[in-house]
Design a protein around this nucleic acid. Structure first.
Length: 421
RNA sequence: GGAGACGUCGCAUAGUUCGGCCUAGUGCACCACCCUGCUAAGGUGGAGAGGGGUUUAAACUCCUCCGUGGGUUCAAAUCCCACCGUCUCCGCCA
């Protein structure tokens, strides 16, 4: 939910943002009109209600012989109050519908346009080159007996897989490396529920245009989360936070579930795009003024993870149209995937400013004692998908795979993954 | 799965019998001030959330909020219904 005051006082800012995203600009004017209508309706209702409250006292104190006449009068007033209340509620609903459809105003400098209009901020590391024909991660996964896609499909259908042996260990090593990184940066680890109630899913903004991406369990009216961001954002919902001692930072460890409904036929091979994977997600609750600095911090943590895994990557500033409704700015880090000859997204970090917090009612107290929404940010620290880049980047001619130094302590010192005999 | 109890302004509690005197009382904690040489104790006052109006702002003022949502009524913390949550007992499973 955007700030109603911003909408009222600076509709141009919202208009520009909607335009940059390629979203409806007219919606801004509709929302402004709905805001005016809503406030008028509220005023009318409250005037009548005040009258009714006062009259109620007269009735209560009236002598018995006058009561009947007064009650008759009160009934008539009550009917008018009821109508006005309904009108106010309707106006409120309409405003919420329209304003709720407005996306988070993008931050100054975010490139306008769609998926291809991103700006590359930097490229880091040397892309792997081979004097042999490199194998893709599926082949390597088979050689190492680390990834079993055939059986994953047999058991659960397409886009499912087993991580086996060294594959399972490698994922845990990566996740634990990320967890230690998060701990050293002061994050509190949190293992989160992966089934959430509808209001939490809606509050984080995932039930909008991407609702067909989400698994839903009708028998229980619960949603399977596609990222622990959902639970992490819901963690402090309806709370007033104390940020005096600095931001609240959490690292959420969870399995993630995605239907991948719109991507049939895309990335069918391997474990790049799957229905289920694990992820360690950073989540920060900060003062609105500190959000951009926190965003830079989250990217830095992500880059240090990519570097620890000895991967070549680029950092991109995602274009407005590709942001999702809650994000005011998003940086993706994409690692070079040798057999695809391209960069693929490994992390994503969003600055949701106060947009998500306003929906979930997460506030802090200002110096004057008033409450106002906090800013929320989130970013990936590790996911199963990283195995793709790690295996392909560090492979050798004989099918063995070099283990990045930083991961070795988590694999009992193992330096090389050897093909199974 | 069955039976029952409960949900009140940070915490604890009163109020629900019998709808209007609840503009929700009290204690603790909290904040400011006063008093006592310090501390403790005591005194006075303040203090919840959301939203309108007004305003540069403050002050002021009005409406809403007693788990959530409906309903009955001139009037609901109080009566009715549904849902959510917590606890206890029984059953079942691990």
């Amino acid at each position: 939910m955007i700030d109603p005051q911003l909408l009222r006082e600076n509709p141009d800012v919202v208009r520009r943002s909607q335009a940059a995203r390629g979203s409806s600009v007219e919606l801004v004017d509709e929302a402004v009109a709905a805001d005016t209508a809503r406030r008028t309706a509220i005023g009318e209702f409250e005037t009548l209600r005040a009258e009714q409250n006062a009259f109620g006292k007269t009735v209560a104190q009236a002598p018995k012989d006058q009561k009947q006449a007064l009650v008759a009068q009160a009934q008539e007033l009550a009917a008018r109050v009821k109508a006005a209340q309904q009108a106010a509620a309707d106006a409120e609903t309409e405003f919420t519908r329209l304003a709720g459809a407005l996306q988070n105003p993008v931050i100054e400098g975010v490139p306008a346009g769609g998926e291809d209009n991103f700006i590359t901020l930097r490229e880091v590391g040397e892309k792997a080159s081979f004097d042999f024909e490199p194998r893709d991660h599926v082949e390597l996964g088979e050689l190492l007996q680390a990834i079993d896609i055939t059986r994953g499909t047999k058991v659960s259908g397409s886009r499912f897989y087993f991580l086996k042996g060294i594959g399972a260990r490698l994922e845990l090593a990566l996740m634990n490396l990320a967890l230690d990184k998060a701990l050293s940066e002061g994050f509190t680890p949190l293992i989160t529920p992966t089934l959430v109630r509808p209001e939490i899913m809606a509050g984080t903004g995932f039930l909008g245009e991407h609702s067909d991406e989400i698994y839903y369990l009708p028998a229980d009216d619960l949603y399977l989360t596609g990222t622990s961001e959902v639970a992490l954002a819901g963690f402090h919902s309806d709370e007033i936070l104390d940020l005096e001692g600095g931001p609240l930072r959490y690292a959420g460890w969870s399995t993630c579930y995605r239907r991948e409904a719109g991507s049939a036929g895309k990335d069918n091979r391997g474990i790049l795009r799957v229905h289920q994977f694990n992820k360690l997600e950073m989540f920060s609750y900060v003062l609105p003024d500190d959000a951009e600095a926190e965003h830079a911090r989250l990217v830095a943590y992500q880059e240090s993870m990519l570097q620890a895994c000895e991967l070549a990557y680029r950092v991109i500033d995602v274009a407005a149209g590709d942001l999702g409704s809650s994000a005011a700015r998003k940086y993706d880090i994409e690692a070079w995937v040798p057999t695809q000859g391209t960069y693929r997204e490994l992390t994503s970090t969003s600055n949701c400013t106060t947009y998500q917090a306003r929906r979930l009612d997460i506030r802090y107290r200002t110096e004057s004692g008033k409450t106002t929404p906090v800013a929320t940010l989130n970013g990936t620290l590790a996911t199963t998908r990283w195995l793709v880049a790690i295996l392909e980047t560090h492979q050798r001619a004989d099918g063995s795979v070099h283990v990045p130094l930083a991961l070795r302590p988590y694999l009992g010192g193992l330096e090389v993954l050897e093909p199974a005999k």
